[in-house]
Design a protein around this nucleic acid. Structure first.
Lengths: 193, 193, 193, 193
DNA sequence: CATGAATGAGCATTCATTCAT
DNA sequence: CATGAATGAATGCTCATTCAT
């Protein structure tokens, strides 16, 4: 994994505050002056560490994607059955959301297409690939229904994303990790052949 | 249903172009000059018909919400079983998305909370109520699993939203209406007791 | 006296509301939309009766000037002595201010130079002439001090304007007409030889 | 005295040009682009140094008020008799007007009430207090007539303001300082018991 | 006569970015 | 490395005015 994450203290400050603001207010409403205010760092310092606001956003985004892919490799890929992969995918996302809702929301909602030229959410590009891999594994061994795989992918990612949104919006108040098994089971009961 | 939709030709032009741009570029990136360019209407005309950009967005948003609620009342509420309600909800959303993807996406993604003071997506506020109504109906008669209703709600709305996103992103190319039965069945198999 | 004052009901409405707003908010802050709001008259009607906002202001201003000159001719000019002229000038202004503070303030403060190309306050142009006439009359017959007439003019107009300002600002609450004799006497005691 | 006056060169430039334009054209007609044109400073620089046009005006205004109050404390307050106070007040204002007509006119005419929330001219608020102090001192020791003090105040401030206006309008061409004694004497002859 | 939709120049302000210190 | 003064394009919006009805 390419390490893009900042290492000096001040760079870290900028990075973290930026991620928070981008999620809270959206990329366009989070201005450099906002960032300066919220971080206590100078304009100059921001432009010293990042070539532009857009590049700062891209860095944050790519780090989140890489984190996602890493987590996926660790948590999900090693599982043998489709059912287990689904369970661990839910577990991975819910625990991550409990730990760092900001990053997860960035991944889900920062709507990079508006900002960057890439178009990534968990179910698009690399994200979509991950979920499709779960599906094709489950379908290959006859564990999942032999229907349109895109549809099954939506059955996996859709509820997970919704749950995280509902957590973010305060509709769900308990930790998502309490709901891992129930959610995974429900999703699995839709997929199972 | 309160009719907020514009009636003069030019007001309509502004309204439609605005909705399109707000979805395509997001509220903040869709500037008034953009709107002027895209619609051929003058700045003054926009402000003659709508008191502000924000109010224009709010009008569009409320119209979409009202449309959703109306459709829900017509399509979904009259169905007797939970299964039928789910099927007609999927049908309603997929056919709507095929007919007017812009409005549906506005509803799903325009993220009005950034802009407006309301916070509505199909699964929040009125939208959430609609889906919860489906769930509680299905649970009341023992048709659906007696688990956390929020979770079941996410199992309904999540996949639908995902499918519409995938259609928007071009991952799905066929009309969503081709996938109504399959999707509804899949969702139902997750919910069923 | 050239009669510029409007005669139709609607023209009158525009005229009176405009004068009020020009004094209250100043010419530049009193917008045509404000005028429409405050008068209930349509934009079109305003432009039907007056060629432009500036011309409307000029009309109002010239009427006020003409009114001033007429009043001067009636009240002040016929007086024989400087003392009487001063007394009647004070009387004229104070009674006018009690009756129609708006017009008087327009005359004093609308600062037409900002707006129009004329530069008139009671003590400039025609206004100045009036006061200078009082002074030269009083000086000619040895009633007033033989000092710089401009200075004496300032001694007449300055206190009168100040009193009207203080009335407008609410510092003086009683009718100015109660103060006519006292004021005139005070001014006269400064001028008298 | 709180020092609000700017200290960097560019801030000074903005400040001085703004004061000049506000007096010449009035607050509302003096636009930021005008300011940019007249000062050679960029828009950004203006907003870097002052949070808004209104705050810029308020700063200028408050500085002028403070300057007035300081001058009053130095020149007028130490005088013992009412006559001397009047003389020094005239002297202070006339010399100030000769030196910096712009600031004095700002104080007299910028009509901040339209803009700001304070309502200060020499004879209102702090200004009025200053003149009233002169009056009450003179009345206390029987030097001035025992009439309505507001009236006496108008006899002091009115002619002074008129003279400065006449100087500004070009009616008076010689330095006002030539007229100090004559003016003070005239005013005093009105006040004296 | 009267209306009000339409126009577009102009305004106050924000913001990403540069660069001299 | 770090600062923050300076820039000016771009934005949302207001307003005097025109003109078809």
């Amino acid at each position: 994994m390419k390490k893009t994450t900042p290492d000096t203290e001040i760079k870290n400050k900028i990075y973290n505050v930026a991620r928070k603001l981008f999620v809270e207010k959206g990329y366009h409403r989070a201005s450099i002056p906002d960032l300066v205010r919220a971080s206590g760092v100078s304009i100059g310092a921001i432009y010293h560490h990042f070539p532009s606001k857009e590049e700062l956003a891209r860095t944050i985004h790519e780090d989140a994607v890489n984190l996602f892919l890493n987590k996926y490799d660790c948590y999900v890929r090693p599982r043998q059955s489709g059912r287990e992969k689904v369970r661990y995918f839910v577990k991975m996302m819910f625990e991550w959301a409990d730990t760092d809702l900001i990053t997860v929301n960035y991944l889900l909602h920062a709507r990079p297409p508006e900002v960057l030229n890439c178009n990534f959410t968990i179910c698009t590009a690399e994200g979509l690939e991950a979920v499709k891999e779960i599906i094709s594994c489950g379908q290959a061994c006859g564990e999942f229904k032999p229907v349109n795989p895109i549809l099954l992918a939506a059955m996996v990612s859709g509820p997970i994303m919704r749950m995280i949104e509902l957590k973010t919006d305060g509709v769900i108040t308990e930790p998502l990790s309490n709901l891992i098994d129930e959610t995974a089971e429900l999703i699995f009961s839709a997929l199972r052949a």
